[in-house]
Amino acid sequence: MRVLIVEDQALLRDGLTRMLTAYGMDVATTPADGTGLAERIVAQQPDIAVVDVRLPPTFTDEGLRAAVAARRAVPGLPILVLSQYVERLYARELLADGASAVGYLLKDRVADVRQFIDAVGRVAAGATVMDPDVIARLLHRPDTLATLTTREGDVLRLMAEGHSNAAIAARIAVTEKSVSNLINSLFAKLGLPPSADHHRRVLAVLSYLDHA
């Protein structure tokens, strides 16, 4: 798998390169500069691009804008956006085109190497992966806490992280059947339309967050 890394901090770029190479991935880099970045990502045709949000020249949200632009040019181009902080506002922008194969994670998540490699693989394979922090607030709302059981909360979080029913079942040690039951019941409680497609499910949860 060919991974394109766009990261201006040398320490993190080298760390990522080492880590991804160790897991058998083919790593390419491109100058970490927001100017013309979207075109360069599209031109390199990677299996997945890992892009830092904050890049030169203005060190604000160049990476995010480039990711959105590149995916507008090539819908469904797999991109994993890394950030020092997650904002639901930005998650919404990444998901606005409705195409899947997109991820938005805190940089901290690279510390958990296996989970991070897993996330890279899932985005490359077309999944939608959102950082747990994106939906963390929902789980802290008194009204949501009152409606959802702990199990349903766990399932919701794992779903937003882009896991399949099987992966969720393995993580919380229940059968796939009961995972799909839990999903049905929590979707009913939040008033969301049921859907089997993972990407659609993430969108539904995030749009619930926007309008709740």
């Binding site: 904002e87 639901r88 506002l89 607030r137 709302r141 008194p142």
Partner: peptide
């Protein structure tokens, strides 16, 4: 807008 989105309440 981000502040409102991050708020625990609407």
């Amino acid at each position: 807008e981000a502040l409102a989105l991050n708020s625990a309440f609407r």
